[in-house]
Design a protein around this nucleic acid. Sequence first.
RNA 1: GCGGGCGUAGCCAAGAGGUUAAGGCAGUGGAUUGUGGUUCCACCAUUCGUGGGUUCGAGUCCCAUCGUCCGCCCCA
Length: 430
Amino acid sequence: MDFIQASRGTRDILPDETLYWQHVEAVARQILQRAAYREIRTPIFEQTGLFERGIGEATDIVGKEMYTFDDRGHRSITLRPEGTAGAVRSLIENKLYAQGGVQRLWYTGPMFRYERPGAGRQRQFHQIGVELFGSRNPRADAEVIALAADLLQTLALEDWVLAINSLGSFEDRQDYRSALVRYLEPYKDDLDPDSQQRLYRNPLRILDSKDPNTQAIAQDAPKLQAFLSSESREYFEQVLHLLEALQIPYQLDHCLVRGLDYYTHTAFEFKLVELGTQGTLCGGGRYDRLVAELGGPEVPAVGWAIGLERLISLLQGRLDLDPVSPDVYLVARGQVAEEQSLTLARALQQRHFAVELDLSGSAFAKQLKRADRSGAPLCLVVGEAEAEAQQVQLKWLASGDQQMRSQAELMEQANILREKINLAKSPKRL
RNA sequence: GCGGGCGUAGCCAAGAGGUUAAGGCAGUGGAUUGUGGUUCCACCAUUCGUGGGUUCGAGUCCCAUCGUCCGCCCCA
């Protein structure tokens, strides 16, 4: 077989599934809009340097997971592995920070990471994310976390766990980092190979290593908490206090470090146990230095991103979305009738009816069967006799009742028809 | 990147070296030449992801390759 398949780690989202995507997008749009977030759409590829600087050279994403290539102008281009760097670049480039104190933005779209694919992990995957720029207030952290909680809640996902930690200010972290390295250095040879690699590049990540030996060593390592300045500590306590006021349950997780370099202070993850290894549904935090680091002014920020593939796979197990069925199924037989049916379908569609036209020209029995399966409450039948008389047969599929109307009459009575269809389509109540 | 499982029709699947590749759902045609949801009948894989090998004989064994899933790593 010389058929060319979809690339490894990519997949098609077929119509039965786009139903769920559209639902999630609609819910997200609604929730974010009413909290005054506005959508931003940034390019899918950026200059490689943006991610190297923004995400951090020491991270796994930059180190081994980027889709990077040279374009025809010999520029190094990278397909975006996450959404924040591009949003920040855009904020700076378009001087959005100048339009008043706070910018609330959200985005959705595909992201790319060159990784080994698995369940809930694709090379092209999708995220929806928010970025709140310009506030150093703990209420901003709480607002953003509350939005994620509301979104999950509204989507009927209630059994999440919110893990949260404070990484302190950049300075706190620098201090801690050197203390940690000082502590770990004597054990260097006992660490697992990955952790040895990270000792000088990204020592904080050693803390959540799964290797038992490393874990034992990490047990007695100095704690990040001890290095937080009193300001950092107080900030974090305020965030936690606000979460309590919002009745959002959380679990302190002092090992939560997050993979990206740019986080400061608050870092959090929403996890679902049933997702297993790929259990993180939403990850985020505060990144007060990133805008400045990428060449902008000192603009503090908080945000998160939700992985849509994981979200939707959960949703499919819990939420039964009705497939969209037409209002009217239009059936015709005979050359004149078939021609009229096309005109009729269009006229009804222009009057905002959802109309499915049967193109088969097969026996009425077959077409009726399809009408039934389409889920439409009403079937319109145009045979040779009706076509001759410019008429149409209305057949209500639930009852089998039938009426003859002239085609002109049908259009005039569109409003009445609309009501009847809505009634027939409204869910049955007991 | 490392370790392991899997790959038979649009979907779910039986099949464990001997040849007619079960069955179900869906689909198509007919019983019903202009009326559906039930029923009945017929049709629906020259071929088992792909390529090579072993064998008289391979869906079944071996190798490679692609894809997928699980674990590790990491993340969304």
